[in-house]
């Protein structure tokens, strides 16, 4: 899983019914290790850009190329190396914590399940489906699972939404640890200035917004 990830987006834009998302098309050339915060007001296209980076959405304009260890790969192959947390990409609500741990354990090599659950104080609820968790509990679980995966691409969309100050501080430390490991292409969309300040670089999308 340690294949360095690189992404090149040339003059991309995405057109919704109301028109193009960005006033000026975006050109990006990002190669791991790199950690970037995406900031900008609501509607500036942070989530859309993350979805494009995840290989889940093809922009209407421009070209996106993905590569792993110097070899060009298809969006479908790229997606297998992406860990992402986004309100637009939630696992089915019927799944239980156990179900999720099994999948991440078998297929993403997570061996920390018990420690992880104890840390986020969900060890007593393993049989609960996601739909029975509070929004804070669900966010803690999914964020912890996302951060624990050792994939070359890590994408977070408003990771500390729904979390109180205590948990925000807890996860900001975890995010900082991942940034310091400095091995991934780590992109985080956020409206929280403290969170953005954890990242060595910021891309402000507000000035691009149409």
């Amino acid at each position: 899983m340690a294949s360095p990830a690189a992404l090149r987006a040339i003059r991309i834009n995405h057109r919704y019914e109301q028109g193009p998302l960005w006033r000026v098309p975006l050109t990006l050339s990002w190669e791991a290790p790199r950690s970037i915060a995406l900031t900008g007001p609501n509607g500036s296209g942070k989530s859309t850009l993350l979805t494009i980076i995840a290989g889940l959405l093809r922009p209407t304009d421009g070209e996106v190329g993905f590569s792993l260890a110097g070899k060009a790969v298809s969006p479908a192959a790229w997606r297998r190396y992406v860990s992402a947390l986004s309100p637009h990409l939630l696992p089915p609500a019927e799944l239980t914590i156990q179900d999720l741990l099994w999948s991440y354990g078998h297929f993403r090599g997570l061996r920390l399940s018990e420690t992880l659950l104890a840390e986020i104080q969900l060890g007593h609820r393993t049989a609960a489906p996601l739909s029975r968790l509070s929004s804070g509990q669900r966010q803690r679980l999914l964020l912890a699972l996302t951060l624990a995966q050792n994939t070359p691409i890590l994408l977070l969309d408003e990771p500390t939404a729904f979390l109180d100050e205590k948990w925000k501080t807890f996860f900001h430390q975890r995010i900082q640890e991942r940034i310091q490991q400095n091995s991934t292409l780590f992109i985080c969309a956020t409206n929280d200035p403290d969170e953005a300040a954890l990242f060595p670089e910021t891309l402000y999308l507000g000035s691009h917004a149409a």
């Binding site: 997606r79 297998r80 860990s83 992402a84 089915p92 099994w102 999948s103 991440y104 078998h106 297929f107």
Partner: peptide, 15 residues
């Protein structure tokens, strides 16, 4: 669909 991970599920579950 995302997260492209196999799931181990109860064959009688609603899902």
């Amino acid at each position: 669909t995302f997260p492209y991970l196999p799931l181990s599920l109860d064959p009688y579950s609603n899902l």
